[in-house]
């Protein structure tokens, strides 16, 4: 264990997010597995639903506000909150203070200010809060990492995820061209501007295929669902996998 934080077991509250809960339960299981392997305990506040990102970013701000209050109710007693989604964590960090301000309730503003420093994106929790890179994983495959925009530009993950991946035994990690380019998902953008989104996706898929990787990973299943949806449509055989599922791998 490399840092003091890592020296004692933390009580981690998992914010799985609505789409991971529904579509990607394996990611949640992998997060639990990695955190427990590192000696922490995981709880799951049962009343949690959605961070509000889809509504807020699509212009339905008023509809997003109740999701903030729900989050606060569910997680107010948490010691530390971990979520395996860069865009949801970015949503919370970037917009919860604005939402609180709009609700004109000083109590909510104070609660948001108190809770946000306790919220971590999964990879960030490992590299920055715990200060570790080697989580004892094994994954004998050729892998390329997709940097989701929110992780890159809002959470400033930097090369944290790649450092975690490099420490995985057996992995063959190859870098994708134009790492910083958006895959074209953008939430409802992929539906509302399907044509342009598809063109952006084509660039990203070309990048993935050029790496000859078997697996494309990242810290956000929404981007991976998008890239993976095209990889499957073309029957490329390349499959998307959340970074937690790689880090959970064992010999």
């Amino acid at each position: 264990m490399e840092s003091e934080e890592a020296g004692r077991g933390l009580r981690v509250s998992l914010f799985i997010t609505c789409y991971n809960d529904t579509l990607f339960p394996e990611t949640g299981k992998a997060v639990v597995k990695v955190l427990e392997r590192l000696g922490h305990t995981v709880d799951f506040p049962a009343g949690q639903t959605c961070c509000g990102q889809m509504h807020w970013n699509t212009g339905y701000q008023e509809e997003g506000l109740p999701m903030l209050t729900r989050f606060l109710e569910q997680f107010k007693d948490s010691e530390v909150i971990v979520s395996p989604s860069t865009s949801c964590v970015a949503m919370m960090k970037d917009h919860y203070p604005i939402m609180a301000e709009r609700m004109k309730d000083p109590k909510i503003t104070a609660e948001v200010a108190a809770i946000l420093p306790k919220v971590w994106e999964f990879s960030q929790f490992l590299t920055q809060k715990l200060g570790i890179e080697d989580v004892g994983a094994y994954f004998p495959h050729r892998v390329t990492y997709h940097a989701s925009c929110h992780g890159l530009r809002s959470l400033h993950l930097g090369d944290g995820p790649q450092r975690l991946l490099r420490a995985v035994r057996g992995i063959d990690l190859v870098e994708i061209e134009n790492l910083e380019q958006c895959c074209g998902f953008g939430g409802t953008f992929a539906i509302k501007n399907a044509e342009v989104s598809s063109a952006m996706l084509a660039d990203k898929v070309r990048g993935v295929l050029n790496t000859r990787a078997e697996v494309v990973t990242g810290c956000d299943n929404s981007c991976l669902m998008h890239v993976g949806g095209s990889l499957h449509r073309q029957r490329t055989g390349v499959w998307p996998l959340h970074i937690a599922e790689i880090l959970a791998g064992e010999e």
């Binding site: 579509l23 990607f24 998008h226």
Partner: peptide
Amino acid sequence: VRDLRVMPKQTFR
């Protein structure tokens, strides 16, 4: 241009 995986039988919760 994309396929969509169906929802798994069991949710995370």
